[in-house]
Nucleic acid binder design. Sequence first.
DNA 1: ATAGGGTTAG
Length: 784
Amino acid sequence: MSSLCKQGQIQQAVDLVAEMELKNLRIGPEVYGELLQGCVYERALHTGRQIHAQIVKKGAIFAMNEYIETKLVIFYAKCDNPEASNSLFRRVRLKNVFSWAAVIGLNCRKGFYQEALLGFKEMQENGLLPDNFVLPNVLKACGGLEWIRIGKVVHGLVVKLGCGGCVFVASSLVDMYGKCGEVEDARKVFDGMPQRNAVAWNSMIVGYVQNGLNEEAIEVFYEMREEGVEPTQVTLSSFLSASANLGALQDGKQGHAIAVICGIEMTTNLGSSLINFYSKVGLIEDAESVFSRMLEKDVVTWNLLISGYVQIGEVDKALNMCHLMRLENLRFDSVTLATLMSAFADMRNLKLGKEGHCYCIRNNLESDVVVVSSIVDMYAKCEKIGCARRVFNSSITKDLILWNTMLAAFAELGHSGEALNLFYQMQLESVPPNVISWNSLILGFLNSGQVNEAKDMFLQMQSLGVQPNLVTWTTLISGLARSGFGYEAILTFQRMQEAGVKPNVVSIIGVLLACINLASLQIGRALHGYLIRHSLYLSIPIATSLVDMYAKCGDRDQAKRVFDMIPDKELPIYNAMISGFALHGQAVEALALYRCLKEEGLKPDNITFTNALYACSHAMMVSEGLELFVDMVSNHNINPSIEHYGCMVSLLSRCGDLDEAFRLISAMPYKPDVQILGSLLAACREHNKIELEEYLSNQLLKLQPDNSGNYVAMSNAYAAAGRWDEVKKVRQLMKERGLRKIPGCSWIQVGEELNVFVAGDKSHPETEEIYTTLALLRMEMSFR
DNA sequence: ATAGGGTTAG
């Protein structure tokens, strides 16, 4: 009978005992104990219950026997039946280490870590010492709860009891420290182990991966190989995670090979890890082939392939996978939806986004913060800030990423006040901001034109011990450049390098944006050299920025050379080059390029038309300008912006058709700005329109510009019209508002005649010199 | 005793 139990033939054993009972043979409690043990081996809940019933029928001698009681508790515990196990356990008078171990283990398996630890405490209060079987469970509970203090107390107990040499206990210690984020302590325990099995190695690798120390995980994996310990599924699964996180192509591939060589079974876990690895390193075909060869797939497996498709922008394929997943009777979970919502956010697809949101509501996925973050981000990217805010507010739990998502939404729109409020609010709710929060805050100020506040935040974050990273620096550099502080942007770029932060493509583009005049051409050239040395100059966004930079700095030939070097040109680089030609008064070349891009099958956008119209205005090509305007509205369905109207008004004014220009201003659906009124005013004196000049002059002065660029434009217009009293007034206003001095009037007159609009660099100490130099340069060019 | 997936900033 005993051997039948151990061989896993419990039914035969039960039958044998029944036969013995019929023959009235004497059967002791230990027989039932053995039967129960057999049920434990086989997790035979039903058979065990029948045995339990027989024990009860036989009366107190059996039912109250300590050995049998313990076995029953263990039996129900192992069969994952906490109700029966707990109620029996409560009635046991003499609780021993074995029954305690069973109950604590059960609570642990069910994730009731606090109950497990309470049991552990009670057990000790009853004078029982934990053994090698209880300790791993207790440590697992500490790890699960991340209760490092209790964990350390248990570690002390382990040492006191002399259990440290047990691989089970030591591995659990390694795991516990890893789960609590104390990898260094985990390593200490690991290094102190007299012998290590695969689980010990695995615990160390997993600890590193879960704490983001992927390099260390990979190192330990190779050490394990050198020691000749056979890897398991867990080893390779974790190793592949580390490789995926690092994008370590060679390591991950080797991991796959090792799995094959060692004949490790392709479980869902391991297969999923492989799919994750291949899709993270961009080998989607390999991910697909692993997927197709897997026999069993679960939600995670599907999610990983869906995520792989989303990462490479193949949203249609991702959605198709969702469809197939449903056909397999698998339900989407929060990970599926978070992945999909991020795809919809990238696509700015509000329709799909809303459908996804509804799905989340119907399936209670909104209780997951990660899903909420993805929904908030989707609404924000689809320009539905109100919806984003409502979803954000309705979320009960708010983690750092959710706060950052909302912060980024306000920052993007330049709603700096709301961003700042949120920034305070999160701290009131005990969520300390990280570098990403600060970056968004800074971006919010920059996008609303509050440069000083942005700079102030940059200093504040450092004084609070948050180190700016590459994104922080880049945000600041691009923001300064866009706000007209080019010189300061360049200085900031230099300071970034002094701080030991290496520039990347995005930061180079940012600083190229700052090189907008002759004075910064030298820096622009130096950057171009840097790009060539780092083989980055053929990237399309970089080339576009280079064309833009050279055009603005007056080196139009170099701009054209870079432009010609790019093989498969896209719209932005055409726009940059057209703008360059326009800036240099080469309207014929600009229009030729406009036709060229259409022949290439590209669709001109509003920027293309702004630049092309500007070129026409510059060259006083009225019929071409009108043709463009009509083409834009009727063939390309573009709603003309105020800039488009501005170009047309300027064109008509310069050609002397002031009445038509005025009609256009009255008819356009925008409030006329300084640029538009100014360009009309500038032409009045020459064409003898005294009444209009008087009217415009008064209108213009009422506008009260909000930045010095507009003051300069205003002053230019008055100067061109010869209205020196107004020029003085504008200069006085600028002085009162603490804005920089504008250049001397003597050359503005000439400049205006040449249609020189020099964007003011508010930060360069030699601004006036730059203005003068540029004006002279442009004059030279036009006289050539 | 140990394992796989998702969300935020330039």
